[in-house]
Amino acid sequence: MSNALKPLAITMGDPSGIGPEIIVESLCKQLYGAKNIVFGCPKVIERAVSQSKRNLAVRVLDWIDDANFSPDVIEVIPTSFFTSLPSFGTVDAGCGKAAYDAIVQSIKHAVDGKVSGIVTAPIHKEALSAAGVPYPGHTEILADLGGAERVAMLLGNDEIRTVLVTVHCSLFEAIQRADYDAQMAAIRLAHEGARALGISQPRIAVAGLNPHAGEGGLFGREEIEIISPAIKAAQKEGIDVSGPWPGDTVFMQARRGQFDIVVAQYHDQGLIPVKYMGLEKGVNITLGLPFVRTSPDHGTAFDIAGQGIADSASFETAIRYANQLLKSKMKDVA
């Protein structure tokens, strides 16, 4: 069976958050002909189905090969079992452990070729920490357990896209991590990621680290000594990349069509412009993995969890992008 015909793994996310309900809402809209399997606690998914008032059944699988993708059925690979369901909107070590276990099992299935990719529901970093999980977030878990040497986070919507040089760390640490190798990795992965999204000759802009991209060294020399040399080296590899551009205007230029994707130096520099345009529009893609992984670009939303008002649009977009990336991957293989 070709990888494209294998199902997507959908991880449950934190059971106290909106993950299970946006999974149910998303899957009920595309069950016919769709091949998705949820990894998580069956009771948690059953509660989400019950609260959704959708006419759906939950079927527990012993093995992924037992899936039959019947209409109006959500199939679940059990990766955790709650004897009593957790409360909504609370930081809980048990929920952090359950969310982590779902991710670990989905990665194992992806590495073994049993699923074509992974779409992850939101997790809570404090809950992960409370559970003793030694990772700050999805990206680091996926990189380590997925066997990738270098990964990068691509966040985007239909208007702008960004790839991050550094991800979940303090701003002080981000400055230290944004070295020449990190710049080169981000530029190369941005190029590959944009091509996978159907942009044949992507135009990449690299944002500066300092105000005004350093202003010729007046506000810092990272642009002169690190970022510019990496851009020149990438240009020699045939990548259409330019910069460093001032971080306060480069996204506006990208939105106007001057660039296809922006390489941002640190987390908030890249994510604020994307999220400002609406959480319901964005998707998070992990580049550099040997399998496809996407997620919505929002968190667990503890404040509205369990109320039936969570918007599933970003999760639906994540599923759509995962399928688009898989089709692109299969074309490259062919």
Rank of each mutant, 00 (worst) to 15 (best):
P71V: 10
L271E: 03
H124K: 12
G40K: 07
I239E: 05
I10E: 01
I107P: 01
A102E: 05
A131G: 15
H212Y: 09
A4P: 05
K108H: 11
A93Q: 13
G198Q: 11
E159L: 12
A207F: 00
V24H: 00
D179V: 03
L171N: 10
N3M: 13
P246R: 04
L27V: 02
V91H: 05
T83M: 11
F315K: 03
F81K: 11
V274D: 00
A318V: 10
N68L: 10
G19N: 04
P244H: 04
W245L: 09
H168V: 09
K6Q: 11
T11W: 02
G216N: 12
I118S: 04
R221M: 15
S26M: 07
D332G: 10
L271A: 06
S200H: 07
P86Q: 10
Q235N: 09
L218S: 14
E237K: 12
T83Q: 14
S328C: 10
D248S: 06
D297Q: 05
P86G: 12
G217A: 13
A131Y: 07
F259A: 03
I227Q: 00
S116G: 15
I309W: 07
V333K: 14
A131C: 12
A301M: 09
A322M: 06
I74Y: 04
T249W: 00
Q258G: 03
S52A: 15
D158M: 06
G220S: 15
P136A: 10
L27E: 03
P78N: 10
T249H: 05
S242Q: 06
E237P: 07
E126C: 12
A57E: 15
A305I: 04
E316Y: 07
A67I: 05
A196E: 13
E192R: 12
A334R: 13
I23E: 01
N3P: 03
T300Y: 05
A254V: 03
R177C: 02
K6F: 08
I226F: 01
D92M: 06
F315I: 02
V241D: 00
A196T: 09
P211V: 09
R293T: 05
P86F: 08
A182V: 01
V241P: 03
K281P: 06
G198T: 10
G247I: 01
D268W: 08
P42F: 07
K6N: 10
T249F: 04
E192A: 15
A213H: 01
A186D: 00
L218K: 15
W63S: 15
R161Q: 08
G19L: 00
I319P: 01
Q324N: 13
D65Y: 11
R188P: 02
D92C: 12
D240W: 04
H298G: 05
I224C: 07
D112V: 05
L279D: 08
L27R: 02
D303R: 13
R47K: 14
L279N: 07
G308C: 08
S170I: 10
W63A: 15
H298C: 13
G257A: 08
M277P: 01
L171E: 07
I231A: 04
A174S: 12
A318E: 00
G96T: 00
E46K: 15
K232E: 12
P86M: 09
A185C: 08
K114Q: 14
A205T: 02
S314V: 06
Q105E: 13
N284I: 02
V167Y: 02
A233G: 06
G308V: 01
A143W: 05
F291T: 04
Q176R: 13
I199T: 11
S312R: 03
A130F: 08
E225A: 14
